[in-house]
């Protein structure tokens, strides 16, 4: 227990991972809710919708990713660009109207700090993205859509993440 607490503080001190929310969250109620199956069902439903969108929009297509990186089609730029703009407008509105969560807590917007990992890691992920034609969301979607061989990619991606954790302290950040 004590060890876990120290480790968590350590992660906070050198937090470069902004997708993991709970170390930054000061609200334990929402964390507790997330343990329960009922509390998590809504995320399962959001995931189902996201999975449908990913396949129907063709962004999980290896060929579409190749077109994107060769500047041969506008499709992917249209999808990502309009997603970013929609996200931006949403965030502005959430801030403007001080929208609360469904548990009536204020929404927290995490400020991110620069780390060299965003460049080095970003380039490495870019290599992997062009090879597999899939970023992590589409990896799950491809498996669901029947391309079961992508399980190999999922397993090696987990291995890659584990290896990063192993050598993290030796890498420039």
């Amino acid at each position: 227990m004590l060890n876990a607490e120290i480790a968590e503080k350590e992660i906070k001190k050198i937090n470069t991972d902004f997708e993991v929310s709970s170390p930054d969250l000061e609200d334990p109620i929402e964390s507790k809710i997330s343990h329960s199956l009922v509390g998590n069902i809504k995320f399962l439903i959001v995931g189902i919708l996201f999975g449908i969108i990913l396949v129907k929009s063709e962004v999980v297509s290896w060929f579409r990713i190749q077109e994107m990186f060769r500047f041969q089609s506008f499709h992917m730029y249209g999808v990502i660009g309009s997603a970013v703009i929609t996200g931006m407008i949403s965030v502005i509105l959430l801030k403007r109207f001080k929208t609360k969560t469904i548990y009536n807590h204020p929404i927290i917007f995490i400020k991110r700090s620069f780390s060299k990992g965003q460049i080095f890691g970003g380039l490495l992920f870019g290599f992997g993205w062009a090879m597999t034609g899939a970023c992590p969301g589409p990896i799950f979607a491809l498996i669901g859509s029947g391309a079961t061989v992508v399980l190999i990619t999922l397993l090696t991606a987990i291995a890659g993440t584990w290896f990063y954790g192993l050598i993290r302290e030796k890498l420039p950040h």
Partner: peptide, 11 residues
């Protein structure tokens, strides 16, 4: 490619 995706995204 999968290894690079896993390593790179977390880095």
């Amino acid at each position: 490619g999968g290894f690079l995706v896993g390593f790179g995204t977390r880095y």
